[in-house]
Design a protein around this nucleic acid. Structure first.
Lengths: 304, 304
DNA sequence: ATATGATATAAGCATAACCTTATTATACAT
DNA sequence: ATGTATAATAAGGTTATGCTTATATCATAT
């Protein structure tokens, strides 16, 4: 079993390049005997002479020439490796693995775009799933970070809110309530609500709200995408409750209106979530900081 | 400056492959803390976490995945290198650099062929030059071995004879002396001799011989190849003195005859020569031994 | 709660690695 | 012959490497 040292290879490489022990010693800031010893050890390890002294000149043996090729190649690899790791250390390179819940898909790409713009060279893998799937990915350590509206209670999880997530009641523009203000919550009992599937964060927030106000509402169609609800509301099938962030386009183009109901918007928060104790890559860490410090501001700006 | 150890890489490779410190410890016949420490040192050297513990499972970080690629590649190279050097150690591979003087070209290829046949995988570089050029190549350490009829006096040179080198007098088959036996040396004074250039080993051996017998001979054409002399002798321009080994074909086909002169053949020797202190490669060493032990026998066999 | 499986940490020890200075050996140039 | 350049060898000392055993920690399965 060959027990060589990187040090030995390195010293050998220098000697082979200079064809001189003394020059190599100079280059490596060593004394000449130190170099002699390293070479001797290397030769002993390998069991072949690598260099030969003929007269004043030092020559490589055939084995030496062979080893020289390998040692240069290995040195190159180590150097490449160092560069690669240095890049990872900084922000020049790196991959951000992130999952977001369906609703967050309306703003997360925008934030990611900003982030990537700032840190060229960072690549992003964005996965959009429902809350349950995102939690599983967290548990399986498949992602660095997640964005969701309702972090799990799990002790194994770190979460921090970074942006408000106002839930609003949306209606088609021709809905009678659109003209009213300070609509009492009880008034909504007469309406039909199109809702997300149970298990959805939005759905449970909604239910908690109405339960707190002791109002029973009528549920119409139940679906697992916010998009479907928006379409249905536009078609006059009922009202919807959803994150303000998901309907900005429809508001701008007056396809939907927000009802001015008392107690609304329900203020929830967006959370950035990761497994506790997870050693975040520098990229993941940077994105987390980015969310905490700049996301809210950026979203406000983009509304203008 | 990255100061990693091959040991660290090796241990890391094992951990990364098993995704378990304990399994790696088993594989390497170490205790688990020993593995932990190697990994820790590696991480400290690099400045990045390579592995992360989440719950019960051990995962690679991005940096870990990157390093894993490199460490496998480096391990592969080291393994290749070991194979290559082992081959050199044995006779499975290797290169023999040899130069022979012009005259030796009549038998050296035959011996080299035998040698190569025995050691498949050995490659040979054969150079044929005059004595002076061969000596220069020795001095410049461009060759492992040389074959010549007259080794230099130089103290820096090791030489050993391995085969007789009989010099004979050749004549065209129709020459009157062909029928005579025990021709006295003095009789040759009446003939014309075609000779090699001065400086040639054959030439000087010849001159020493005639000087010793106090016979002055007539020199005809002087040339620097034995081949030219053979042609000229066949053409009836005179007699020649040359190594028996160079005229075997012509004798067999009766294009030339050997004269039965008293004192002939002059017995010289072929020498295998190398720089003193040169560390011969295993191949070169093997060929040297081959010459010393088997060359003479093989040449006799080939004559039959 | 408790046990289990996995890794981290601590303390200690033998020895191997690595380098130094001083000296010797060798070949070459003057 | 003498001096110079180069590498080998010897002796000695500090450091760091690489283990081990024992113990702590932590998450999870029971």
């Amino acid at each position: 079993m060959l027990h060589l040292t990187l040090r030995q290879l390195k010293v050998f490489e220098s000697v082979a390049r200079h064809l001189s022990y003394s020059r190599a010693a100079d280059e490596l800031h060593l004394t000449q005997p130190a170099v002699s010893m390293q070479i001797k050890q290397l030769e002993d390890n390998i069991g072949l002479p690598l260099l030969e002294q003929l007269g004043k000149r030092t020559h490589l043996t055939e084995a030496g020439r062979e080893l020289y090729q390998y040692s240069r190649s290995i040195a190159q690899q180590l150097s490449d490796m160092e560069v690669a790791l240095d890049e990872l250390k900084g922000m020049e390179r790196g991959k951000l693995n992130i999952s977001v819940v369906t609703t967050a898909n309306y703003f997360a790409p925008h934030l990611l775009a900003k982030f990537c713009q700032r840190y060229q060279g960072v690549t992003v893998s964005l996965n959009v799933s429902n809350r349950e799937a995102v939690l599983k990915q967290l548990a399986d350590n498949l992602i660095d970070l997640a964005i969701m509206g309702q972090p799990p209670e799990n002790l194994d999880i770190d979460s921090e809110s970074f942006m408000e997530n106002p839930l609003v009641v949306v209606a088609p523009p021709d809905h009678p309530l659109c003209k009213e203000r300070f609509i009492p919550v009880k008034r909504l009992a007469k309406e039909i609500f199109l809702v997300r599937e149970s298990g959805s964060g939005t759905r449970s927030a909604m239910e908690r709200f109405f339960a707190a106000h002791k109002v029973a509402i009528n549920k119409g169609m139940e679906t697992d995408t916010t998009e479907a609800i928006k379409q249905a509301v536009q078609a006059g099938m009922g009202l919807g409750i959803m994150s303000l962030h998901t309907v900005e386009l429809e508001l701008e183009t007056s396809r939907l209106k927000i009802l001015n109901v008392q107690g609304f918007p329900i203020v929830r928060y967006w959370y950035v979530v990761n497994r506790k104790n997870k050693r975040l890559s520098s990229v993941a860490n940077a994105f987390r900081e980015f969310l905490l410090t700049e996301a809210e501001k950026l979203m406000l700006e983009s509304k203008k």
